[in-house]
Amino acid sequence: MTNIVYRQLTLEECERINEMNPSQYIGKAWREVDGKRQLVEINYHDTDWPNGYEHHLTHLKRTVLDGGSAIGAFDNNDKLLGFATVDRTFFGNKFNYVLLDQLFITLEHRNKGIGKKLFMLSAKAAKGWDADKLYICAGSAEETVAFYFAIGCKEAEEIKKELYESDPRDFQLEFPLSLVND
C-alpha cells in the first residue's frame, strides 16, 4: 500500500464502515481491583463492533449531520481502512472539550500509523473550532490505552459524568489541542 487518502466522509459513505473488520483480541485490560486500577488478564476476543454495528453507524451519521468531523482513511482501491469522528458539541466547566467519539482501524491495517494520523487530523479539526481539548473515553484494553498515552493523551482533568457512567472501566482521557501544529 503506497498511498492512503484521508478525507471527510459523506453521509452516503457512512455505511462503508461495514467494509472494516472491527474485531480485537484483548489479552489484558485495565480493571479496578481492591480500589486500584491495574492490568488483568481477560483473554477476550471481540469479533464485532463494541455496542454493535448499528450503534456506530448511527453515531457516525449523527456526527456528519451535526457538522462534526468524520475523517476516513482509504487505500489505493478506495477501501475504507479506518475512520475517526469528533462531535462538535462543546462541554466542560474549566475547558472547552469536544468528544473524540470514534476511532477505528480495520484489523488488517492496525499498527501502521493510520490511527495516529486520523487522531491528529481530528485534533486539528477540533482546534479549528476553538476547542481547548479532545475528550476521549478509551476502552480499557491494554493496547488501546497505550496508544492514547503514546500520542500525548493524559487522564482528563474534568470528567463528563454521563460518559464515565456509560462504562466506568473506560479511561477518561484528554488531549490538549495546543499540541497540534497549525
Rank of each mutant, 00 (worst) to 15 (best):
N77K: 13
Q172W: 00
V180N: 03
D182F: 09
E13L: 03
M1F: 04
G152T: 00
D170W: 13
E32I: 14
R88P: 07
K116R: 14
L177Q: 01
F91I: 11
K61C: 02
F149K: 09
K133Q: 13
K79G: 07
F90C: 12
N181I: 12
D132M: 10
G115D: 11
L100M: 04
L60C: 05
D75K: 03
E158D: 09
L100K: 01
T89P: 01
D78Q: 08
K28Q: 10
D167Q: 15
R7F: 08
D170F: 13
K61G: 01
M120T: 12
T10I: 05
P22A: 02
I159E: 02
V180K: 05
V40R: 09
A70P: 07
G152V: 07
V33M: 13
R88A: 05
A126I: 06
R110W: 01
R37I: 14
Y53L: 04
Y97G: 04
H59I: 03
A125M: 14
E108G: 02
A146H: 13
A123R: 03
L99A: 04
S69N: 05
N18Y: 12
H56A: 06
G35P: 10
L118A: 11
Y135C: 01
K127H: 08
F175R: 02
A131T: 10
F74C: 03
L57D: 04
D48C: 00
G139Y: 09
L163T: 13
L103P: 11
A150L: 03
N93S: 12
V40M: 10
H45P: 00
V86R: 04
K28G: 00
I42V: 11
L134H: 04
Y6D: 00
Q102W: 10
E165F: 04
L60R: 01
K79Y: 09
D182S: 12
H56W: 02
G128H: 04
T58Q: 00
Y44T: 14
L99D: 10
W30Y: 15
T47E: 15
S166V: 15
I4N: 01
H55E: 03
E32N: 15
L100Y: 00
R110L: 08
I71L: 02
G68S: 07
E108Q: 14
N51Y: 15
V180S: 08
N43D: 02
Q38M: 13
F149N: 06
I42C: 06
A138I: 03
K160P: 00
E108A: 11
P22C: 01
K61S: 07
F171L: 08
V64T: 01
L179W: 01
D87S: 14
E174K: 05
E165A: 08
R16M: 07
F147N: 09
N43Q: 09
G67W: 05
L39E: 09
P176Y: 05
Q172N: 05
D130G: 02
G128R: 07
V180Q: 06
V145N: 08
D48A: 02
V64F: 03
G67D: 14
S23E: 08
S140V: 02
G35C: 15
W49K: 01
D132C: 12
V40L: 10
L11R: 00
N111V: 10
D130P: 03
Y25M: 00
N51F: 13
D87L: 11
K124D: 11
K161F: 09
R169V: 15
L121A: 04
N76Y: 11
Y97S: 08
S140Q: 15
T58E: 03
H45A: 09
R169G: 11
E19P: 09
D87F: 02
Q8S: 14
F91C: 09
C153I: 02
K36C: 10
K124H: 15
